[in-house]
């Protein structure tokens, strides 16, 4: 399927906040957990439309790789957007946000769009973090904020799509260098100018080269 742009996202946050469920909920809506079943996945892709342009979102969950510094570093650097997720029913996941944010700011490129997500909004009775607190944190650090539920799918679409919109706006403003693959943005095959002279690993339509087999 052809697209105008491809945005790479990462999802970060403590374990158990529902990152991979959010991901699956967004990319594969079929898994609406009517039944008591939590399913997650580490990678997913989906096409959305912004400004009547087809945009492909690729979302990479980084769970379980924190042990290796090289890995987290590279993930941050390669993404155009990040969803920073905490669990509204567990205060400590909210308290760790600063650490996550510091990490993200240190390793990512400065233009990366970060969206703060308070997940599990369906569990209102067990809520430990008020919505206002999330809003305040987001305001203080210049993030976009939203409460979601991977279970009821509330706001999940919006979370991913709003992030994409912001990235898209930044592209329009010329903030992102879209010819630089390292930013986590790729121009679609039909949009990319043919520049075979580009050296090294930055071929913009890299898949053509074939995966070295």
């Amino acid at each position: 399927m052809s697209y105008a742009y491809l945005f790479k996202y990462i999802i970060i946050g403590d374990t158990g906040v529902g990152k991979s469920c959010l991901l699956l909920q967004f990319t594969d809506k079929r898994f609406q957990p009517v039944h008591d079943l939590t399913i997650g996945v580490e990678f997913g892709a989906r096409m959305i439309t912004i400004d009547s342009k087809q945009i492909k979102l690729q979302i990479w969950d980084t769970a379980g790789q924190e042990a290796f510094r090289s890995i987290t570093r590279s993930y941050y650097r390669g993404a155009a957007g990040a969803l920073l997720v905490y669990d509204i029913t567990r205060r400590e996941t909210f308290n760790h946000l600063t650490t996550w944010l510091d990490d993200a700011r240190q390793h990512s490129n400065s233009n990366m769009v970060i969206m703060l997500i308070g997940n599990k909004s369906d569990l209102e009775s067990r809520r430990e973090v008020k919505k206002e607190e999330g809003e305040a944190f987001a305001r203080e650090h210049g993030l976009v904020f939203m409460e979601t539920s991977a279970k009821t799918a509330a706001n999940v679409e919006e979370a991913f799509i709003n992030t994409a919109k912001e990235i898209y706006e930044k592209i329009q403003e010329g903030v992102f260098d879209i010819n630089n693959e390292a930013n986590g943005i790729k121009i679609g095959p039909q949009h990319s100018p043919t520049n075979p002279s580009l050296p090294g690993a930055t071929g913009s339509s890299g898949s053509q080269g074939g995966g070295c087999c």
Binding site: R77, E181, G206, C212
Partner: peptide
């Protein structure tokens, strides 16, 4: 490891 130098960073 055949893909260790794949053009796609991810």
């Amino acid at each position: 490891i055949k893909f260790f130098n794949h053009p796609e960073s991810m």
